[in-house]
Every structure is written in structure tokens, then in C-alpha cells.
Nucleic acid binder design. Structure first.
Lengths: 225, 225, 225, 225
DNA sequence: TATGAATGAGTGTTCATTCAT
DNA sequence: CATGAATGAACACTCATTCAT
């Protein structure tokens, strides 16, 4: 119920009614993500965002201090959606390998759903002043932590080699992001599920121990995907 | 002598003396890459570029039609440097695995040398209008082709599994780019050479056939890396 | 009970309860004088005034038609305080010279008490549209009239030379105002009472007849000032 | 030849050609003084100033950093004109009383010539940020110094009483300013020369010693004024 | 060729004012 | 009566681009 640091709630509004703030920010962010993703941050004017959100330009400044704040809010909303999807996908799963696969798959799918927004994050994080950019980095590190935990679990269970967890996590994360970043080309090579399948296979080869490999085969035959 | 597609020569200058054009563009591009990399495209003014290049603002428009042209030129100069480094690194090598390793290593090193510029490419390509962006994509595809060729060679020689070459190429390329994109975090985990070593090991595990693996071991013991 | 010209009552309110109107306007004007004096009229927003007055911005517009009306009200309240202090200081005095001295002294003291507000009046009267500015001028003329009357009395009594009453009145008024307008410098030269004493001495020299001069000496020795 | 502190030259231009800077600033300041005087600083837009000056809005920002800088420049130009007129009027005069009279008269005349601008100075100095306002104060102090010197000379020559020079200087200065500040009323009482004459008579009465008075009479009969 | 002064359209932001509740 | 969220016109300032020299 409390607003945690590094979340959307950090940006202070001049309006006190919390429900209204949530609603308005929702409108603003949705429009902003859409427009920033397509036209870029600098080519999008606040008036554009306002018009698309169906509000006046002045209103935006009651919920945000800066145009840059709109960007921050937009980026955080994207990263936050990552942070929500992954735990949801892991719910009920206990097998390390299953959790690993579910996490990667969930990540890739949310990237796919928010493809433009993911590209936005890559393009525009550097447009933020240092302090606000830090919020983004913190959020990214947190998400990565979820992937890293799945990986570490597999290693602890003797299913994967003892690799540098954080480095490999970056490989995994980057693999998911690439679906958005290079979609203009990748979409001609395969669809999302094939991309995930190929990727998982690739990572399996790279990471699994013989023991892990046996479980993996079992998993592959029982799971329909 | 002919202007090839996807190269610097596509942007038309108002000045006829080719040597002068090359010199002036050199000045302009160098300043632009520097400034765009640090402050971003939109935060950098043409006057900034002019001042840093030691020329007048008006002069720039005799060698370029647009501010966007400056960006295009800057990005192409970065991508071109990739295209030059890789063949140079492969020169004299004939063993498929050696060529593969050399290509990856060369790529990572150029990325490291032009880290800011690499980030710039990610941030700013979308700031170009579609037609000019295509030039960038073409250039990227060409570079990827070099990596892909090395990979394909290894497969043909039975040293690597028969994976989807283009997909895996993207993994390799992305791995190199990540050094720049995530440098703020990666630099705290390892230095460039460790990053390359870990990566090569990872890809080896993922790709090598038993035969390839034997050669790889041999390679690892003979080569100091 | 009737609204007199040149007073606060000219500005029409949308609220009928007169007592409430007086109370609300009191709040608003007090905040406005304070804020306008310190930050100036244009740098002060209606929201600032509302917040300081502890009311909502909307409420102000039920007691005022304009932001300019708030300024008018504020200025009038300042000038009105002049108009009240001077007669109060003269009460019970009948000697022309004593009344003259008392009037000047009272004027200087109100100016001192409302120093910022006096400066405000100088700065901001011109910000009013002509018709409203006229109200201010009327008010100022009325106050000047009190000083002028004291001066005229001294002349009629043969205590002062037969000068142009209105012109000298302006000198006297200006002398009082200067304490506020040039306070940044004057405060380093003397305190208020010294300022008054020096001024009175100066005006005495300039105005008194030989007869007046004798009375003045007498006054000076009996009165502690 | 060097730019002295506290003068117009303090505001830095982006244009290097000094003659051009002088010319452009002349245009800008002239328009600004005119417009600020009539409509006030806040009611005047930079576009207004630009249009009246016959230049583009953007141009102004090559010669000025701020709208506030335009105000500073305008105010300084007014105060500077005071500083020039007074010494010019004193040239060739050596008699202390003559110099005193000439100084006051010159001051009043320049105030009359730049009546609106003088009012502007009173209204708008407080609109400047503290550091820039200091420049104005410095300039004012300098001008006052000229008057004060004339006054001090008369005292030293035994022509005037030994009053507090700086305080009386403020009275003299304020007298001149009042012609502008209260012109709406004063112009109905007398014209400028009468105003000056009455004022000089008043100050003479207040300040002259018997010796000074004798010289004054002589002066009055010989000088046509 | 090169310069750099000039342009003016474009945009983030503010704030007086309104009005539904 | 009072509130305060919403509006939208207004304005300072920037900067890509031009063009006379």
C-alpha cells in the first residue's frame, strides 16, 4: 500500500486525490508510451501527449513536473510490467529448470507485447538526467535479479554449469530484448515461439550439465510447447 | 571510385572538390560522433558541432543537407569501422574456429573502442527517416554477414551444430553490443578480455560439436588468451 | 453604510453576506499585500495568495473579479491606512505648528510600518487599468489634502512663508515615501526618528517665518523628540 | 575604451563585432524603454520589443541572455543619461552655488526628457534579481555623488549650512524624480521651469547661510532663468 | 568557399479563470 | 458558499536553416 522507492509513485503530483492521480497518470503514460515509442521522445510534444490522452496540456503539469518526468514515468511503467509478469509466470512452479524456462518465456512474451516500449527504453533512458536514470537502472537490476535467481537455482541443483551468473543473466535478458530491438529482421526469420524455442535450446546447450540435460529432455517431451 | 550504397558517399555535398569534401566531412563527423555520443542527438546543436569542428555553422550545410544527415554520416562512420576491423582481424587466418574467434574478438574490441558511439547507434537510428535508416540497416546486415560467414564455415566443417545461422549471429552480435550498452554494470563484473573469454566459452559450449570441441581445446592451449 | 468612491467597496462581490465579504476580503488582502510586496504583483500567483490566505483559488473569484482587483484592493488598503493614521495623530492638537509636525511624523511612521507596501504602491499602481488607477490617485490626493491643510494653516497663521501649498505638500509627502523607497540606503545613514528630525529641521528652515521660527524653538525645547 | 563595471557593457553578447553590438543594443534598448515605460515590463513581450525594434525575436537573444537583461540594459541606459548630463551642465562653471544650481537644473531637465523612463526605473528595478539590481544601485549612488559633491562644495565654501550631505542629496534627487513620478498632477500646477525655480528657492531657504544668501541674490539677478 | 548574423517557427511551461461537485 | 481540478491562451527562449558578404 505504501509507495516503494524506484516506482512510479516517486514523481510528485500537485493533486491530492490518489485515485485521480492514478487514473490521470495512467492516461498520460499510456499516451506517452505510444507516442514516444513511435516518434521518439524529442519528436513528441507535450501537446501531442495531451491530445492523445484527451486532456489539456496544462493538466499534465499537475501530475508531473517535467516533460522528462513523463518519460521517466513511461519507462518505469514498461520496466514495471516486466517485474510483474515474471513472478506471475513462476507461480506454482518449483522445479528449477521449469522455473528457468518459464521465466525466460515470460520475459520474451512481455517484451513481445510491449515491443515498441522496449525499444523506447533502449533509446531514451539516456535522455534522462542522471538521478532519474538511476531509478531506471535500479528497476532493471531488480528484474534481472529474478532471472538470475532462476539461473542460480539451476546451478545449485547441479543442473547447470557453474557460470558467472550475472554475466549470463545479461545474455538471457539481452536475448529477450533483441526480439524487440531487431524485430525488423527477426520477424522474417521466425515467430516469437520459434525464437523462444531456439533460444532455450541454445542456452540449454551452453549451460546444462549432463544431469540437467537428462531432466531437460524429460521436460521437453512432457511439456507441449 | 564509384559511390557504393550504404556508404558516406550517399549524402550529397554542394562542394565539388572531393578531397575537401572528405576533409571537411571528417572534421564534422568526428565532432558529431563525440557530441552526439555524450549529449545525444537532440541535445546537440549544429552550432555545437561547428564549434567543436572549428568551422562555422553555415559551412556544415555545404557538406550536408540536414542535421539528420550529420547523424546519418556519424552512424555510418561507426558502422563502417566495424566493417573494416573484422576483415583486418581475419587476414591470414584460415582455420574456421580461429576465424570465428578472431571475428568475435575483433568485434568486441571495436565496440569497446567506440563504446559511446555504439550506444549512440542504438539510441539514434530511429531518429532517422525511414529511407536513411535503411542505409544503416543495410550496413548492419553487411557486418553481420561477416560474422555469419565465420559461423557457417564452422558448421560446414562439422565443428559446430547446424543451428540457424542468422539467429545465432544475432546472439553473437548482441553479445558484443552489450559490452557497450550495459557497460555501466558490466565494467564492475569484469574487464573486456574476461568478457570476451567468458562469452567465447559460453558460445563454444552452445555450438561446438564433439569434433569442434576437440579442436577448441587444442586452440585454447596453444593460443594465449 | 453607503459605499464611498475610492474605497474598498467599489469592487463588487458575488457573495451577499456583507460580514462574510469583509472577512474574506480581509484575508485575501492581507495575504496579497504581503506577497505582492515581497515578490511583486506579476510574480505572485492567485494560487499563492489563496494558499497564504488559507482558502481555495476559486473562492477569491467570488470576492473579486480580477487579479487586478486584488491589486486594487491591496493598494487601497495601504493608502487607507495612511488616511486613518494622520487624523488620529492630529486629534486633540490645535496649534498649527504642532499639527504640522504631528502630521509629518505620523505619515513617516505609517510609511515605516508599511514600508514594503509603500514600495508596492509605487511599483504597481501603473499596473492597474486607467479607471482603477484613478481610484488610487483620488485616495492619494485625499491624503495629501490632510498634509496640505496643516501647511496652509501654518501659513494662514503667519508661521510659514506663503509658498505654493500643493507643491510643497508633494515635497513633504515625497520625503515620507523616500524613507521606504530608499530604505536600502537610508537605513545605513540614520534611523527613522533621526530621519524625521533631520527632515523637520530642513523643512522648518525652508518654510518658517521669523515668527514661526520663534514658536518652533519653543516647541523644540518643550517637546522631546 | 575599456568597459567599466556597472555599465551597459556588462551584459555579454554572442556577437563579436563591437560596432554591431552597440548598434543592435541601441535599437533593442530604445524599443524596450519605450514599451516598458508605457506598458510595464511584464505586459511587454519580447516579440513586442523585437517588432518595435524592427528585428526578429531570436536576434534579441544574441545580444542579451534574458528578458531581464533587456530590462537591466534599459534601466542602465536611463541612469547613464543622468550621469552624462550633469557633468556636461557643470562644465566651465566654478562658482559653488552656480554649480549647485546647474546640477539640479540639469537633473530635473533630464528627468523631464526621460520622464516615462524615470518612472520605469522606479517601477521596475525590483523586478531584477538581486545581483543585477545591485548594478542599478551602484549607478544611482554614482549619480547622487555628483549632486552630493556640489552640495558639499557649497558647505565647504560657507555658503550652506553644515547639513547631512547624503540625506539632503536624497531630498534633491527625490525632488527631481518627483517631477516624473507625480507628473500627472504637477503638470497642472506648473511647468518644468517653474517647478525648478520653486524648488531651488525652497532648497535655498533651507540650506543657505547668510553669506550664501547674499551670493544667491546676486546670482538670481544676474542669471536669466 | 567560408562566415556568422539573422530569422521565425516551434515548444515546454505557467497561471488566471472557470465550473462541476 | 467553497473547492480544486481542468482549461487553454500566452510567452520566453531555442535552434535548424538561410544568405548577404
Amino acid at each position: 500500500m505504501d509507495s516503494k522507492p524506484g516506482t512510479v509513485h516517486d514523481v510528485k503530483a500537485q493533486v491530492s486525490d490518489e485515485a485521480l492521480v492514478a487514473k490521470r497518470r495512467g492516461q498520460i503514460i499510456a499516451s506517452a508510451v505510444e507516442l514516444f515509442s513511435h516518434q521518439g521522445f524529442y519528436r513528441t510534444t507535450i501537446q501531442d501527449v495531451a491530445k492523445k490522452a484527451g486532456v489539456s496540456a496544462g493538466l499534465i503539469y499537475q501530475y508531473v513536473t517535467d516533460k522528462e518526468d513523463v518519460l521517466l514515468l513511461a519507462l518505469l511503467s514498461v520496466l514495471e510490467s516486466y517485474k510483474q509478469e515474471i513472478p506471475a509466470a513462476l507461480e506454482g512452479l518449483s522445479d528449477p529448470l521449469e522455473r528457468f524456462v518459464a521465466a525466460i518465456r515470460a520475459y520474451c512474451r512481455v517484451v513481445d507485447q510491449r515491443r515498441e516500449a522496449t525499444v523506447l527504453a533502449y533509446r531514451s533512458t539516456k535522455s534522462l538526467p542522471d538521478d532519474r536514470r538511476q531509478l531506471i537502472k535500479d528497476c532493471e537490476i531488480e528484474t534481472n535479479g529474478m532471472i538470475a535467481a532462476c539461473l542460480a537455482n539451476c546451478i545449485k541443483a547441479g543442473l547447470m554449469r557453474d557460470v558467472n551468473v550475472e554475466l549470463v543473466t545479461y545474455q538471457l535478458v539481452t536475448f529477450a530484448h533483441s526480439w524487440a530491438l531487431k524485430h525488423w529482421r527477426l520477424k522474417e526469420l521466425c515467430d516469437l515461439e520459434q525464437y523462444i524455442a531456439e533460444g532455450l535450446d541454445f542456452f540449454a546447450q551452453a549451460l546444462l550439465t549432463p544431469k540437467g540435460r537428462r531432466q531437460w529432455e524429460a521436460l521437453s517431451t512432457t511439456t507441449i510447447c
